[in-house]
Structure formats: structure tokens, C-alpha cells
């Protein structure tokens, strides 16, 4: 992995803007950061926390047309984005993108966007409020396998740029950068280790996950937790690995129908309800239990080689019913 010195990430950003449409975090009027294209004036900082909305919407669109029907033919409506760079993605969200790369490996809509994307990661050098990425092997340092380029903010405020693969090499071609000192990677590892040490005690998380695996909690646990689920879908919308979707028909005119898919939520009462009204997950506790086993179940690890949770903590931040990941794991850990 080649490493370069970078005085300011904006140098890289401007260079990439000549080749890609650059998305980066931008702060909205309500103070929440989200991914926006062609942002001017916002700088990137080493201590920046992930935005409330993850980058998954850039690949798995919140709503998109799948195909149209003109009365005779069905026509696939694949997206055709220009090459784009996602600038400054944190390790948790990059791990989630790698997870969804696998889940949507055969999804032409996801892959049409994904193949056009350059991922520029950023190492976290301080823990964020609800994050626990080290516990689930998703950070705080960006894995070389999850990004094309990695930015690392040094203690003196200057940066290192790590080039992960050929795509990264092509992206920085034409940029005049000095090679970093030989000790750069080692120093980076030390900074990441230091960041890991600053995370809060994760004992209750580990205990809670074990209780979930061993099913030590009583069945009533999920009934009680289910009562606190308002089915608002905040957790599934913000979760960077959640991927459920529904489809709906849009009548454009008398002769044309467009079929759209949209983010759905497995926590909605109607999610599995069939036309006959039979509903295999009628009780909210059943749905909440499945959500958490989807995030931490060993069966999913067999498929994806990791948990479905990347430790971003967004569910904790958004859940009005106080059953986000920290709240759930604290309660589960009592059965350890």
C-alpha cells in the first residue's frame, strides 16, 4: 500500500473533482450532515464523526425506478451515473458498503452505481458518541479492502494518503505528491490503536451478543421490547446495512406504468402480511427479535463472514423507543 503526504485533503478533493462528481458530507440547516454532491466550502477534519445518514443511499437508492411498461414491452431502467467519488467515508460505513456489495452482488441497479464509485475513506482518530466499531471489527481504521483511497489525519494536522488498489492509483494519477516516510503505516496503526483504547467498555455489548447467540433471554423479553418499537423505521433507514425494499406501481399516464422500489422496513406490521391477511410476524416482538438476530446472528456470519452490525450506533441515536443497540445489549447482558 503506497502512502503519500498530503498537506490538505482539499488538494485531493479538487483533483478528484476533475475526474469524478465528488460527494462529501455537508451540514444541513438542522445541523445534520448528509452526503451531498459538489459541496463547496466544507472542509474535512480528522475528528469528524459519520453523518446521521450513511452513504448507502448512493448505491442502494432510497427510491428508484426498476422498469417501465408501455402497454406492450417492459423496459429495464438501469441508472447510468457518471463516475463519482465518495470523499471521507468512515470505516463503519465502508464496512457496510462491503457488506452490501456482497448482498447486492447480483443486483444490477446497485452494481450500476457501485462500479462507478471511488471510495475515499477516512480513519477515525477519536471515538464517536455511540460508535463501537472495534467490537464488531469495523473500525476505527479503514480496512484496505473496503476503500480505494484512505485519508489519515496526523497529530500535527497534516495528512497521509494511502492508496489501496489500482483504482486508487488511477484516481491520483496527475497529482504531485511526496512519498510518506517509511514509518507512516506503523505510526498510523499506533494512532488507530490509541483510538481503539479510547472507546468505552464494551463488556455489555459482548455479553449481550452472547446472550442473543445462546438464547438465554426469556421469550417475554422480545414481547416487552416489541412494545417499545413504534415501527417508525428510523433504525432501518439509518442502518447502513439494512436492505429491505418494497415495490410499487406508478401510473405515469394511460399507457405507461413505472415500477419503483423503495426502502421498506422489516419492523412494519405489514411487512410480511400476505394478501390473505396471514401474517407470520404479527407480533412486534417477533419483528424486533428478527431485526437483532439479522444484525448479530451467527447464521448471517456464515454467509457474510461478519456481523450485519458495523457498530455505528445510529439506531441508538434515532430510536424513540430506546431500543437501539446499546439499550438492547444492556438489557440482554443482564441474562449473561
Amino acid at each position: 500500500m503506497q502512502t503519500y503526504r498530503l498537506d490538505d485533503p482539499s488538494v485531493l478533493q479538487k483533483h478528484l473533482a476533475g475526474k469524478y462528481r465528488v460527494y462529501q458530507m455537508a451540514t444541513g440547516t438542522e445541523g445534520n450532515a448528509s452526503w451531498q454532491p459538489d459541496v463547496d466550502g466544507e472542509s474535512i477534519s480528522g475528528g469528524q464523526r459519520p453523518p446521521l445518514s450513511s452513504a448507502k443511499t448512493l448505491f442502494f437508492s432510497e427510491q428508484e425506478n426498476l422498469f417501465s411498461f408501455d402497454g406492450e414491452c417492459f423496459r429495464e431502467t438501469l441508472p447510468t451515473p457518471e463516475p463519482f467519488a465518495v470523499f471521507g467515508v468512515h470505516s463503519c460505513d465502508l464496512t457496510a458498503i462491503a457488506y452490501q456489495d456482497q448482498f447486492f452482488a447480483d443486483d444490477p441497479y446497485y452494481q450500476a452505481r457501485r462500479k462507478q464509485a471511488l471510495l475515499v475513506g477516512i480513519d477515525c482518530i477519536t471515538p464517536c458518541e455511540n460508535g463501537f466499531c472495534p467490537t464488531v471489527d469495523a473500525g476505527p481504521g479503514v480496512s484496505q479492502s473496503c476503500a480505494d483511497l484512505i485519508l489519515h489525519c496526523r497529530q500535527d494536522g497534516s495528512w497521509w494518503l494511502l492508496v489501496c488498489n489500482d483504482k486508487g492509483v488511477r484516481a491520483i494519477t496527475g497529482l504531485d505528491l511526496d512519498r510518506a516516510e517509511d514509518t507512516a503505516l506503523q505510526t498510523r496503526e499506533q494512532a488507530i490503536d490509541s483510538c481503539k483504547q479510547q472507546f468505552a467498555d464494551d463488556g455489555y455489548l459482548i455479553d449481550g451478543i452472547r446472550v442473543l447467540h445462546e438464547e438465554k433471554m426469556p421469550e417475554k423479553f422480545w414481547q416487552d421490547v416489541g412494545l417499545q418499537c413504534l415501527a417508525c423505521s428510523g433504525c432501518t433507514i439509518l442502518c447502513p446495512t439494512c436492505s429491505c425494499y418494497g415495490t410499487r406501481e406508478k401510473l405515469v399516464d394511460d399507457n405507461r406504468v413505472e415500477v419503483e422500489r423503495f426502502w421498506d422496513s422489516c419492523l412494519y406490521e405489514s411487512f410480511q402480511r400476505e394478501a390473505s391477511q396471514h401474517n407470520p410476524t404479527l407480533e412486534p416482538g417477533q419483528r424486533v427479535r428478527r431485526f437483532w438476530t439479522h444484525k448479530f446472528g451467527n447464521e448471517f456470519v456464515e454467509t457474510f463472514d461478519r456481523y450485519g452490525c458495523v457498530g455505528c450506533g445510529r439506531c441508538e441515536e434515532t430510536c424513540p423507543g430506546v431500543i437501539g443497540v446499546h439499550s438492547i445489549m444492556k438489557r440482554l447482558s443482564k441474562y449473561a
Binding site: 436492505s243 425494499y245 410480511q272 400476505e274
Partner: peptide, 19 residues
């Protein structure tokens, strides 16, 4: 068995049963 389905290719999630 019968379940609600949208995609039929294992991605929309509607017909889940455990994993």
C-alpha cells in the same frame, strides 16, 4: 409454504424466515 414476495431473488427481505 406461502410467503409475501416482491423480488423472488432473496433481496427484498419480505419472505424472511430467520436467516
Amino acid at each position: 409454504i406461502e410467503r409475501r414476495m416482491h423480488c423472488a431473488v432473496g433481496t427484498c427481505g419480505h419472505c424472511y424466515m430467520e436467516h
